[in-house]
């Protein structure tokens, strides 16, 4: 009984923390972008503007929940839910501390890759069901981008898996007690970071959205809380990728003095900040450039990483 209660507590705790982080990130992102553009960003609602997400949520809930008459209604309503559900499901395998993790899956890495692949359905279905050519172009781009970046996202993690000798995220973190995998797996880290940015379709790889070309891409026709769900999904995605970078390459909860969960969140938020810095600094590549980088540069790099890591492990044996 006590055990069940503890599990439930962890599940709802993680859910609550993640949802509040997703909301809080809206404020963090706007503040940081402001600072990097020599502005202040939202600083009026509450102390330093921290209540801005609350005001945004109230506004977005009060908006008309409109479904365009030419849209495919059931799919249109389902699409925003998919992205939030898949990202939240991925959090099930993230080990926050040795004690706090929803599921200690022995195929955690594969589970995460599967869930992030499912996320593409959200974008593709949203664009398809909108019945709008810009949305469709955005959705097609999203599908192509996510499929090509999925390939080496998985491959870039294989080096980590080889070094740790496990697909279990817990054991991957434990294997980094001596040395964080960022050092032996630097190439894998770079490839995973770029794939992660593309996976969450954040700038500079936000071609599915591409405000300057496609209105708003796959969510052009969305408004109200359905639009809000896409945003929640995006911010959850950033948090997830940052948490996983921390887990795979930066030793997860490991660190001196401070409690493990604090270390985990410090590392995660450094990467969240880096994601926002990418958005502030870099322009969007062209579509063909994006695909070319993926297949001609990143995929060979990931394969090279596997071959070299595998060779070194075999030689050391």
């Amino acid at each position: 009984m006590n055990q069940t209660l503890k599990h439930l507590l962890i599940v709802f705790g993680v859910l609550g923390v993640m949802m509040s982080i997703a909301a809080g990130l809206i404020w963090v992102e706007r503040r940081l972008l402001g600072f990097w553009q020599d502005r202040y960003g939202p600083n009026r609602v509450g102390p330093m503007g921290v209540l801005q997400p609350l005001a945004d949520v109230i506004k977005i809930l009060a908006k008309e929940d409109w479904v365009p008459p030419f849209a495919d209604k059931p799919v249109f309503i389902l699409a925003p839910a998919i992205i939030v559900i898949t990202v939240l499901l991925s959090f099930a395998v993230v080990p926050f501390t040795p004690g706090i993790a929803i599921a200690n899956l022995n195929i955690g890495v594969l589970y995460f890759l599967a869930m992030s692949s499912l996320g593409v359905y959200s974008v593709a279905l949203a664009g398809w069901s909108s019945g709008n050519k810009y949305s469709l172009i955005g959705a097609l781009r999203a599908s192509a981008q996510m499929i090509s970046y999925e390939v080496f996202m998985g491959l870039s993690l294989m080096g980590v898996v080889m070094l740790a000798g496990s697909f279990n995220l817990h054991e991957i973190v434990e294997a980094q007690r001596g040395l964080w995998f960022i050092v032996p797996q630097f190439l894998g880290f770079v490839v995973f970071l770029i794939a992660g940015v593309a996976e969450t379709h954040r700038l500079p790889f936000d071609l599915p959205e591409a405000e300057s070309e496609l209105v708003a891409g796959f969510h052009s026709e969305y408004s109200g809380m359905k639009f809000g769900l896409f945003f929640v999904g995006e911010y959850l995605g950033i948090t997830l990728i940052s948490a996983l970078i921390t887990t795979f390459f930066f030793g997860g909860w490991l660190g001196p003095l401070l409690p493990p969960v604090v270390w985990f969140f410090i590392k995660t938020f450094l990467f969240v900040g880096f994601f926002i810095l990418l958005r502030a600094a870099l322009p969007r590549p062209r579509y063909d450039q994006l695909i070319r980088i993926g297949w001609k540069l990143m995929l060979p790099l990931a394969l090279l990483n596997i071959v070299v890591t595998g060779g070194i492990i075999l030689a050391a044996r």
């Binding site: 990097w36 553009q37 202040y40 810095l277 990418l278 600094a281």
Partner: peptide
């Protein structure tokens, strides 16, 4: 150039803000 761009933008954190409150 990408790394330089990231660094330049990051250093803007410490610039004076142009906003008039």
């Amino acid at each position: 150039s990408i790394l330089k761009a990231l660094w330049t933008v990051f250093m803007h954190l410490f610039r004076r803000k142009v906003t008039v409150l």
